[in-house]
Nucleic acid binder design. Sequence first.
DNA 1: CTGAAAGCGCTTACAG
DNA 2: CTGAAAGCGCTTACAG
Lengths: 323, 323
Amino acid sequence: MKDVADRIGVSRQLVSIVMRDLPGASDETRRRVREAAAELGYLPDASARILRGKRSHQLGAMFTMHEPFEVDLVEALLDAAAARGYALALGPLTPTRAPADVVDQLRAQRVEGLFVLSTGGEASRLKVPDRVPAVFVGGSTALSGADDVRVDNAAGIELLVGHLADAGHTRIAYASAGEAANAAERRSAYAAAMTSRGLEPDVVESAYSEEGGAQAAAELLSRDELPTAVMGANDRCAFGIMATLVRAGVRVPDDVSVVGFDDSSVARLPFVELTTVRTDPASLADRAVEVMLRRLDAPGADPAGHRQTPVLVPRGSVAPPRA
Amino acid sequence: MKDVADRIGVSRQLVSIVMRDLPGASDETRRRVREAAAELGYLPDASARILRGKRSHQLGAMFTMHEPFEVDLVEALLDAAAARGYALALGPLTPTRAPADVVDQLRAQRVEGLFVLSTGGEASRLKVPDRVPAVFVGGSTALSGADDVRVDNAAGIELLVGHLADAGHTRIAYASAGEAANAAERRSAYAAAMTSRGLEPDVVESAYSEEGGAQAAAELLSRDELPTAVMGANDRCAFGIMATLVRAGVRVPDDVSVVGFDDSSVARLPFVELTTVRTDPASLADRAVEVMLRRLDAPGADPAGHRQTPVLVPRGSVAPPRA
DNA sequence: CTGAAAGCGCTTACAG
DNA sequence: CTGAAAGCGCTTACAG
């Protein structure tokens, strides 16, 4: 910093002001400072900045890099946080890094708040971390008592059942993800949507994974008669169902229609073309950051749940039932 | 830190020694310090530590969270770096974060060295960053002049062609990934492996993606006769090929055998069961960290390429050719 | 083991 | 805009 200041004959404070885009320097000076910084390859030291500042302006995200929807969310959080002047420190959960270790790592980086992502699997059992404000995103917090931003499950399921019913389906099965995040809500929304149309619910146990979908499809295939439509607990599950049916010689959507939930990248593959329901990760992330900033302002406020309404994304995996 | 020291009546230096596992404290004292730290929720401030220390003991990784093989590699790098006493700062490439921005972010965190991952797509065109030592992992650096750790492409292709030829295949097509990382090497290794067996190479253009595989399969399906085996540029490509063939009513492996490259998670799906070739991410990561530490010790040394030998992973996607 | 001191690279607050 | 000063929370190096 001193090198930059000396090079163009200004004070270190001025360099600091320019690098932080604060008022108090002329345009010409700003230009010269930036030019000198670029020439010298100077970048303000993030550690010194965090250490000195009263606030770190750092948030953290605990998530799983192998979950595509969580990755979408984290990328959106990176942008949403940056738009509000915050950096986002990444805390990936891996087989060798337990949640408590990840929280400690993030706390050591002096994050002011922590986003906890848990869209499926074991991650949904994550506890609310001590000693740092947390906002859950995309997952389940029924028992947690923390702020929580996620998709409106009931609205999504209602869209999907309505779409299938409108196409003429009456025998619609649902592959449910056991005890995982959002699973109970989706299952009961499905039962309600079916019953309200005078249709019989048909739930088969599954999971938020391709393997889970494959298993559900295997169970359906073992019956005397297939349903005319199957709803996957999420896109990955739906994809497992679809692939297993196709492998068994069942045509999708000609023989059986399949729908998912999430609109993840797999739904867009040319040989998948999955009809699904979408919650924009960007809007979920914007909301989550907003909730976090409010939480930091008012640490004592009661935690609240926030729901984003999804939209239907029709693709090629739904057709009217045969005969 | 002072709170912890005061609580049990020792000096701050002693707390520092215990938290860093340095010699100079009795077991009993260590226990008491750790207990007090846990009770107070004390964690040493990472910023202060980096700022004060002569070295940051931080490395960085620039990668794409949406590439499963890169995620595997990063998880392995996290462990490999930790085993050598280094933290790994994550620099994900996203649609809104250009490589130069990611490098700056990591440099601002005072990383001593940078791992550049580029296993496919545009990432393979990444330039060697200025002002920070870089080790390329998994990708192409033919023109870069940087250290480079990746799979031995020729050995992997030879294993796969040998496996198919041993099963009796003679008409083996190869879906090549254009100009992407490792693509040229794999393509010419394929041509060499075929020619050395007296077989005719048959290359169709593709990409390291499901879409690329789907496109290659579509081209093969448009021919009068299918080959009896198809090799994908990587697993994702092979999966796209397989799924597209199956959708078209071609049975895999009964009618056509398919093989991939990487042993990524998709290869293990129950309805995929892809025969492929595996480079252990852990061994690649260990090697990369080793190369990095050597580079930090000897900044002036000539950059070198390092190859890890892959092994064959036989699954269910290969059968002898029909008739 | 303790105690006193310096300093990493910044930001903050102040008088000019 | 400048200049001088303090301090964020640690680590380092030293005499005891």
